[in-house]
Amino acid sequence: MLLLGDIAPSLALSIQVGAVVVWLGFVFSLSAILRQFGNNSELVRKVVHIGTGNVLLIAWGLQIPLWLCLIAGGLFSAIAYLSYYTNILPMLNGVGRKTHGVFYYAVSITLLVALFWRIDLPQFAVVGVMVMSWGDGVAALVGQRWGKHSYSCLGNKRTLEGSLAMLGVSYLIVVLVLSLANGWLGGGSELFHSSSHHWLIALPVAAIATLFEAFSPGGTDNLTVPLSSALLCYTLNSGLTPF
């Protein structure tokens, strides 16, 4: 983990904010370029979806404090809510549907930060958000490009190929984040030292995330998937390791 405690607080804060701003600038610039060259709106939206989710990984790595994360989360939530009614950020809008999904996404990030940053276990917030951002993002793109076997759950149209992609990506995300946490918290050289239980925890977490992604109606998967996967991961991990 990048430690900023040995430098001036004002400089540390500048580095933290600057890193997030640069990353978000890159994400939105890339989405604008993709739109300019006529790429389909689902691809553009998922680039933003995945890219914004990675901000929490940056916040974890740079040890951005809780208060700053909450301010950013509140601002993101407000913008996301307004984007439902106005055209603030057109790349956030869904494809062929109008839901509060982006708002739920912002709220879930804020809630997870408030919960897990406070108890100094940010890796579980990162698990929830990245399972949603990468798992759901890849699932949508795979389903759109290669989906051949479709099914419907509570009005949601899904494909078997997309759901399998969600399961696989979510599984890998959980393993990688928990392994990184083990390495950062255990001294770096122990990156995969005691990670055998990570492979066991990852399966039920990925499965529940995939089920919620399939069954949650009206964009609520952006709330149910990150919260359920983070809380389940925390519960299972707490039962297997002495956090």
Rank of each mutant, 00 (worst) to 15 (best):
L4Y: 14
A12H: 08
L13A: 15
I15C: 06
V17Y: 03
V22L: 14
F26G: 08
F26C: 13
V27R: 00
F28M: 13
R35Y: 03
Q36A: 10
G38V: 00
N40E: 12
E42F: 01
R45T: 06
I50E: 04
G61Y: 07
L62N: 10
P65G: 04
W67G: 13
W67Q: 13
W67R: 01
L68Y: 07
C69G: 11
I71N: 07
G73F: 07
L75N: 08
I79K: 03
Y84K: 05
L89R: 00
P90N: 10
L92W: 12
L92Q: 02
G94F: 06
K98I: 12
T99G: 07
V102L: 03
F103H: 10
S108E: 12
L111N: 10
L115C: 08
F116C: 12
Q123V: 13
A125P: 00
A125Q: 07
V127A: 07
V129Y: 04
V129L: 13
V131I: 15
V131N: 04
M132S: 11
R145A: 10
G155S: 06
N156W: 08
G162Q: 01
L172P: 06
L176P: 02
L178M: 13
G183P: 05
G183Y: 02
W184T: 05
S189H: 15
F192R: 02
S194L: 09
S196V: 09
S196K: 00
H198T: 01
H198E: 09
P204Q: 12
P204L: 09
P204H: 11
V205I: 11
I208A: 04
L211F: 15
F215K: 04
P217V: 00
G218Q: 06
T220C: 09
D221M: 03
L223K: 06
V225T: 15
L227Q: 05
A230G: 09
L232T: 04
C233G: 10
Y234G: 01
G239A: 11
